[in-house]
Structures are given as C-alpha cells and as structure tokens.
C-alpha cells in the first residue's frame, strides 16, 4: 500500500506530479462541462429562450460583477502565493471568500423574489432554480475548498515551493466563474 509521501512513479519528481494533477483537474472540468451542458441544453429544449418580465436584471448583473471581482481576487491570491507573498495570499483569499459568500447571499435574495414571480412549478422557474442551484452548489464547494487552503496556508505553508493546492482550488474557482459566464446569458439575457 502506498502512502501519499511516496512518489507515484519510479523516480517521479514534483514537476511530473504537478503535470498529472493538472491534467486530472482539467479532465474533471471536462466532465463537469457535460453536467452543466445537460442542464443548459435542457433549458433551451423546454423553455427555448423565454424569460419572464419579472426577472431582477439589476440584481443578476450585480451578481455577475461580484463573481468577476471574486475571480480577480482569486487570481491575485494565486499570484501572491506563487511569489511567496503570504500576507497578500491571505488577504486576497479572504476577499475571495467574502465575495463568494456575498454572491450566495445575493442568490438567496433573488430566490426569495423568484419564488413569488416564477416558482419551480413553472417551466422557466424549473430551469432557473435547477441551473442557479447547481451553480450555487459549486460556489459552495469552492468556498469550502478556499477555506481549507486559507486554513492550511495560514503559516505560509504553500508559497512557491508547494503551490499546487492553491492553484488547483483557484482553478476550480475560475471554472465555477466560467460556468456562470455561460449560465448568465442562458437564463437572463433573452
């Protein structure tokens, strides 16, 4: 039985392991794309491009901007970590988590309104709650992962010498943002 401390391949260096991890993560993204793809295409099949009049466009745009801001702060956290700026890493990770939580709060607010105007029992509401819920679930898992690297990295454990855990989590965060880039026009902009 191998332990995590042992190398995966005979004479495998950290750079080989990083390459394997990176490939694995991108394969996971490819797989997730199909999950989002299933729901996005189903939205078009059942409700075409119809959107209700009562959509809160201002709130949706605000959510989009919040997520974009969290993306740049995640990028800054990753860059800070890679340059051994541990303080910057912590600050920007906390900022990312805050913005992510703000996004979830915004979604909760949006859902409260949506339950009145287009509940899940309507055909648009079905797509809306399913897709936004699926995305919010991913945001939540991303927040948990960010909290873990913030906790583990509190004493400067990662830095440039062990940057993969930070990079991996932040790539995931960007992926969740990428999903929103497609979901946003799918649900709101028609």
């Amino acid at each position: 039985m191998t332990t995590s401390a042992e190398p995966i391949q005979h004479g495998a260096g950290p750079s080989r392991q990083r390459r394997i991890n990176q490939l694995g993560l991108w394969l996971f993204f490819a797989s997730e794309t199909f999950l989002f793809g299933a729901f996005i295409s189903s939205r078009f099949i059942t409700s075409q491009t119809s959107t209700p009049e009562d959509l809160n466009q201002a709130l949706a745009l605000a959510l989009t901007i919040v997520l974009l801001l969290s993306s740049i702060s995640a990028y800054l956290a990753e860059t800070a970590n890679a340059h051994d700026d541990h303080r910057g890493f912590r600050i920007y990770t906390v900022a990312t988590i805050t913005l992510g939580a703000l996004f979830l709060g915004g979604v909760a607010l949006e859902w409260k309104e949506a339950l009145e105007y287009f509940p899940p029992g309507t055909i648009y509401g079905t797509a809306f709650f399913s897709l936004v819920g699926l995305h919010a679930f991913h945001v939540l898992t991303g927040l948990i992962a960010l909290a873990v690297i913030l906790f583990l990295g509190k004493e400067g454990r990662f830095g440039s010498k062990d940057s993969w855990p930070v990079e991996g989590v932040i790539k995931y965060w960007h992926f969740v943002d990428l999903a929103w880039v497609i979901i946003y026009p799918t649900l709101y902009l028609f």
């Binding site: 059942t46 029992g121 309507t122 055909i123 509401g125 399913s130």
Partner: peptide, 14 residues
C-alpha cells in the same frame, strides 16, 4: 422533491 416541472406536462415540461 423540489416541485420543478422538467417532465410534468401540466407545468409545460416534457
């Protein structure tokens, strides 16, 4: 469980 109507014809699903 969540009361959506992906497949329920009355709500417009198929």
């Amino acid at each position: 469980i969540a009361g959506t109507t992906w497949f329920g014809a009355p709500g417009g699903g198929t």
